[in-house]
Design a protein around this nucleic acid. Sequence first.
RNA 1: GGGGGUGUAGUGUAGCGGCCUAACACGCUGCCCUGUCAAGGCAGAGACCGCGGGUUCGAAUCCCGUCAUCCCCGCCA
Length: 590
Amino acid sequence: MLKTHGCGDLRAEHVGRKVTLAGWVNRRRDHGGVTFLDLRDRSGLVQVVANSEISEAAHLAATDVRNEWVVRVEGSVQSRPEGMQNPDLPTGEIEVMVDRLWVLNAANTPPFPINEETEVDENVRLKYRYLDLRREGMQANLKLRHQVVKYIRDFLDERGFWEIETPILFKTTPEGARDYLVPSRVHPGEFYALPQSPQQLKQLLMVAGVERYFQIARCFRDEDQRGDRQPEFTQLDLEMSFVEREDIMALTEELFTTMVEKLLPHKKLLNKPWQRLTYQEAMDRFGRDDPDIRFGLELVDVGEAAGGSGFKVFESVLESGGDVRGINAPGCGAFSRKEIDELTEYVKQFGAKGLAYLAVDESGEHRSSFAKFFSEEKLAQLLEIMQAEPGDLLLFVADEPAVVNESLGRLRLHLGDRLDLRDPSVLAFLWVIDFPFVTWNKEEARWDPSHHLFTSPMQEDVPLLDSDPGKARGQQYDMVLNGLETGGGSIRIHDRALQEKVFHLIGLEPGMARERFGHMLEAFEFGTPPHGGIAPGIDRLVRIFADEDHIREVIAFPKNQAARDVMAGAPSPAEPRQLKELHLKVVDTD
RNA sequence: GGGGGUGUAGUGUAGCGGCCUAACACGCUGCCCUGUCAAGGCAGAGACCGCGGGUUCGAAUCCCGUCAUCCCCGCCA
């Protein structure tokens, strides 16, 4: 090794030791006869002193180096002179007096500062990702991600899981997200697809008698990007045989609870065991199936007060089967008309036709867009239901239930951000269960699976598949953290007849079902154990653990919003020779 | 596929019709300095204001187009 110690590992106990260090020059402070270098490696920083009275050669060399040069130094650890300690630095009690200094590699001036955490244009960061990753914050993210994955591997290994790799080149499944296709050279006109998840393969591993499988699995989806979406992402994919819903939930809960306690002691777990909500409860109280339960502002049904209130907008919505619900934003009663208008514009994005408001001022007087239509009695009832106090702002949406949920659910999060109620030091894990098995797709006029094709309905709801599919519940469970879906799983179907019934229900023709999923149906007839699993998203979890806004910050080499790798320049046109070999022709379509 | 925001030295920003021959901070270069740690002092270099077109006596500034990028919606079984 070219070094004996990590820069950041040196302490008072090393005083008197001869050490060799190697790393990057974080900063140089040249005082003439003495030059200080902050030498940085993965372990941290240490001050290196080149004194012309000790070694003229080392001092000259130290004066020449610049930020980000790679250097190696040999010297002795010594206590810093009295009063010269730096309490802000873990190595601040000591310094290394240099005898010799070698420049291992010079460096250009970096395009952005490596030694401080300044905001830098994302495009520039991604182009020089190898420099971006040198920065302290990104190093911490990479390390945390490693620790999370390592914890998962150890935890599951102790419980008898086998880590098994499944293919990256697999078969296209035209349902769901768009596939990345890979042309076959050997088979003209045929394509592999990159897996959107190893779902089918892990189920087949259960048929194979593996019983407990996991994989840190790369998944691919050719959809547009978001802060929490990348074209390729990583899931902890796991599957178990002979289990029921509770078994998977208990295992997952123990894994992440103990992980957080060990790796993130500075974070508070909101609840232990995790809170559970049924899908219906989540929708009723939060308007979404991935609620952030770190704060209140829950949705309240005010149909009782709105019916017969005299306010036509509310009444007509109720008459046509819609909902009138509201949020009480405590302490926002002083919001200006302009601020309320902004909130109105916000909910309109999500289909709401308007936002009715009632602001109660500190003396109990109110101003409102609708109260003048209300009878005194009905208004009192409304305030009662909303538990309105002086200083509160009540906001209402009246519409069909889906629109009310979407707009108020979003408004709740918006207010949570605005009022600073989403405490980043708190981790609020949550299970959402009892999802509807299928949901009605209006455009296509058919039932869509609400999770995936292989999810089992609740045993007692199987008869409903024939009589009233919309009422059947699935054996699905979603893991939610701080308002973000971080994992979904289910108990699977392990019976061919039931699987075919489900294919039929969602309108998949038997011929098509056989062509796409024949291998699954056939496998189910060879002694398939009851099984189930879950797939928590590693990127999303680590992102939240690291207090980052984008999963890009916890992925070493992510794509940008346009799904490009701006460092290497991918995707890029193929050579004509390659296209020919792959039997492909690029056609202009526009 | 749709909507919105942003493009000004290496980085972060200011300037938003004439005072711009484009400012500030950090960084960079040179010189000085033996106790700094965001070192300090002095001097200096560095920008066709994303690109193309238009309006105007005059455009970094207004308009149109285009490209890039970020965010949101759709999409994401």
